[in-house]
């Protein structure tokens, strides 16, 4: 606990480019960028596959394989290949990390919608796209949000590793602390990342409350 007081009580940690606010902002910036790219790819793809049922097996296998890819290795390789100091390549491993949970949950969500409900929507005269967007998506929303939440939490926590290849973010405190054996910084950074991950988790639970229709919540 003394370490925590030392880390958070130090005024030098609260300002400048190495300060907690600046590092937090950096961390959020590239986490958000990676998360948004992944969501833009995985949500529409998952909805399409769940709706049409085409390519489902391939996607599930690929998503499982992607889970095994070690983010640290991918990060190091991509940055070496692209040249040290570039920011965009760092996003690639994070995007790869975020896609599987979003894709699988979106697909499972859309596919798992009660067949009666789907038939009723067609019976009421809705077209394929309308059925997907107006009936299947709202009903599948809890699972889609679950996928997004898992992905967001993983991206925020894994983005810590990006500090290893020279990027900023909260991981800087941990990596630099380990390198210089300043354990107060290591623990302080660890607490910050953990708090951020929990905040993201909580934000998505709130979003779930707001976005999911009360009717859908009832039948759950």
């Amino acid at each position: 606990m003394n370490w925590l007081a030392g880390f958070f009580g130090d005024a030098a940690h609260w300002s400048g480019p190495d300060g907690i606010p600046a590092r937090l902002l950096e961390h959020l910036e590239f986490s958000a960028a990676a998360f948004l790219i992944a969501a833009l790819i995985a949500v529409p793809l998952g909805m399409l596959i769940g709706h049409t049922g085409r390519g489902a097996l391939l996607v599930v296998i690929a998503a499982n394989a992607a889970r095994a890819l070690p983010t640290l290795g991918l990060l190091v390789l991509v940055v070496l290949l692209a040249g040290v100091g570039t920011v965009l390549p760092v996003l690639i491993p994070l995007v790869v990390l975020a896609i599987p949970p979003i894709l699988v949950n979106t697909y499972e969500g859309v596919r798992g919608v009660d067949a009666d409900l789907r038939d009723a929507a067609y019976g009421m005269g809705l077209r394929g796209r309308q059925v997907l967007l107006q009936t299947l998506t709202p009903v599948a929303l809890p699972l889609i949000l679950l996928g997004l939440r898992l992905a967001a939490v993983q991206v925020v926590s894994t983005a810590t590793v990006a500090a290893f290849v020279g990027l900023g973010g909260l991981g800087r405190f941990i990596i630099d602390g380990l390198a210089t054996k300043t354990y107060a910084d290591v623990i302080g950074g660890a607490v910050l990342v953990a708090a951020l991950a929990l905040a993201v988790q909580f934000a998505f639970l709130l979003l779930d409350r707001v976005a999911v229709s009360p009717g859908v919540r009832q039948i759950r």
Binding site: V153, S157, T160, I174, L178, Y183, I187, A190, A194, L198
Partner: peptide, 18 residues
């Protein structure tokens, strides 16, 4: 368990390191 799962592995490693 949900809270645990959201903790970064590097964070837990560095806490247990001490």
């Amino acid at each position: 368990m949900n809270v645990t799962y959201s903790l970064p592995s590097l964070v837990l490693f560095s806490i247990f390191l001490s």
